[in-house]
Amino acid sequence: MTEGHSEPETEPNTTTDTETMTDDADDELKTHTAGFESPPTGETIIEAEDVNVWYDDDRALEDISMAVPEHNVTAIIGPSGCGKSTFLRCINRMNDLIDDARVDGTLRLAGKDVYDADVDPVALRRRVGMVFQKPNPFPKSIYDNVTYGLEMQGIDGDYDAIVEDALREAALWDEVSDQLHESGLELSGGQQQRLCIARAIAPDPEVLLMDEPASALDPVATSQIEDLIADLAEEYTVVIVTHNMQQAARISDKTAVFLTGGKLVEFDDTQKIFENPEHQRVEDYITGKFG
């Protein structure tokens, strides 16, 4: 794990050489303490070790190592094309669906490597829910959208109650309770995204992956979703990709900064990242000097 964390050496930081050296040492230290020793944020649930992803011959992720704590919101930020979505897709093996994607390294969910031969990706995805960048409700009724995962996973139970709970948790119940059997496509974009969140949490996953869930939404809908994510973290572990610095600062407990080339440059408590980042490049990125 320690050796895999090699990116600071290749970092082309030309201005402050000596500082960079100390930065590196510090950075590694920080990452470890953050992942393994800081108890207030709970046990580690997702643990990546030297994860690399290639699309054909292009390397999209380079030796990513990080540990995501349980019942927390972990934000992933970074410029476009740096591999944030790719990393998210590694966690629930959605990359398997891309013909020319290749993953290596170790990625453990609750201690078990999800790329082990005996792991069924379908079973894995039942434990790891996902919300996509663009709202993508099924062309079915709102009710059927929420029960989709339950039915596919063969979960029995009082569907009416589960649907109500999930929609309440997604802060959508009040708006749709009288039109549950109408098409989910008739909702507004923000409502559709909350429906997708309700759909993802209905089967009660352990981890919720969100890929820029608010990128297509207006400020009001965005703030609704942000409130929602804060609530969700009490029950689930949330890993969220976002392009919006303020959003990451507002809602996350931990933040990972990916920079171009598919490298994880810094991973620490959100407050630390935003107030006092170890790397100049991270600071530049956060303050909008590049990216």
Binding site: A123, R125, M130, F132, G149, R199, P203
Partner: peptide, 9 residues
């Protein structure tokens, strides 16, 4: 994607 993401085969 949505369907696979929900753990559908």
């Amino acid at each position: 994607q949505a369907s696979f993401g929900m753990g559908a085969t």
